[in-house]
Design a protein around this nucleic acid. Structure first.
Lengths: 209, 209
DNA sequence: GCAGAACATGAGTAATCCTCATATTTGCAA
DNA sequence: TTGCAAATATGAGGATTACTCATGTTCTGC
């Protein structure tokens, strides 16, 4: 964590490769970065290593990517564009409730499969990525909190499947944290709406099973 | 991002302060770290600055915290313990559905307030914290995807409030991503269960309003 | 074939985390 | 009180890494 000039600004792309040769080299750089992220995670990815593996100099790397984040961005944007096309196609022709059910279900499966299969996507979007240990602490905390909910649910719905209750409580709790994070990332008014919507949704799940 | 030895291991606490003097100094270190995170975020927090603001040498800092993450951990654990006590108290005596509704609602409000009021907590748990710009990209992506859902919902439920549909779709989508992240962080079997539960929950929300 | 633009290079700069040899302070037994 | 070991304090320096820039090479249009 050194040498970083604490620059939180968004870096502008340095230069788009215009010649065939450099286009190929940029592809090699991205491929090298992708492989390294797969192997070690984006945080451990070293720019020098990316350059070496792509067979270019460190200077060439910085010719096309203003900084380390730009490479990760470029990879993220590819996945983003790809999945957006997929989503648009799946939802385009939905006309009734049953159609939505089918399309949404399929979409979730595709996304889940993508997360499972693509280590790069996983790494980039995994949240608190920089600190895997902190992520584990967060999960343990969330699980512990969910247990309190499970205890209540067991009392209210004695006949229900324990594993199912556990899953529901854990999910509801984790989603609450996600909703909060989301809420504080947007305008206050929209954040309030989102938290209210979460509350309603969660309570329905908890009360009606 | 330099000088980091790519050590992903969890660092053991270096030494617990046993004398009164050092206990006070450790408190000052934590207070300094907290203030700096509030001002600039945990990523921009510099160890040298923490030491300086706490009025101790850099060496003393490392006497009690094995590395930078350890300070952030220590702060996170305080909030964790505090909020867990709060949750336990709120849910302990819930006996019926109405009680759960009240307690859960109150709990969400407290948590939301905590997120809004405590920049440190916000920073630590905010996800993809290292890269605010990437977070914005993620949100923009999520919003764009939610729009496809909104389009479908408008067709299926023409009478509904547009803002409400927008909120629902955005929330459902963002929670889907949270569910995926969660799912890939746990055992495969539990992950599958969580995704299935999310799917059911989201569809109910989308179809039944 | 030539001028200028695009591209390529890698040693060097700057910033940061963390170590370690050394010095000081504290607690306590004699 | 005194002496000594353990605890604590210090900050210059080691090590690593993101990123720059002066210089050299290749390509492209005319």
């Amino acid at each position: 964590m050194e040498g970083k000039p604490a620059n939180e600004q968004i870096a502008s792309p340095r230069r788009a490769p215009s010649q065939q040769r450099s286009r190929e080299r940029v592809e090699r750089m991205l491929a090298a970065a992708s492989a390294l992220i797969t192997e070690q995670g984006s945080d451990a990815m070293r720019m020098g290593e990316v350059a070496e593996r792509a067979g270019v100099s460190i200077g060439s790397l910085y010719q096309f990517f203003p900084d380390k984040r730009a490479i990760i961005w470029a990879l993220a944007e590819r996945y983003t564009a790809e999945s957006q096309a997929c989503i648009s196609a799946a939802l385009k022709d939905v006309g009734d409730a049953e159609g939505l059910r089918r399309a949404f279900s399929e979409l979730v499966d595709i996304y889940y499969g993508l997360f499972l299969a693509e280590p790069v996507m996983r790494d980039i979007w995994s949240g608190t990525q920089a600190d895997q240990a902190l992520r584990q602490l967060e999960l343990a905390d969330s699980r512990a909190n969910a247990e309190f909910l499970v205890a209540v649910l067991r009392r209210l719905r004695p006949g229900a499947d324990p594993v199912s209750l556990e899953t529901t409580a854990f999910l509801v709790w984790q989603m609450g944290e996600a909703a909060m994070r989301l809420a504080i990332s947007v305008e206050r008014q929209e954040g309030d709406r989102l938290v209210a919507a979460y509350k309603r949704m969660a309570l329905r799940e908890l009360l009606d099973g």
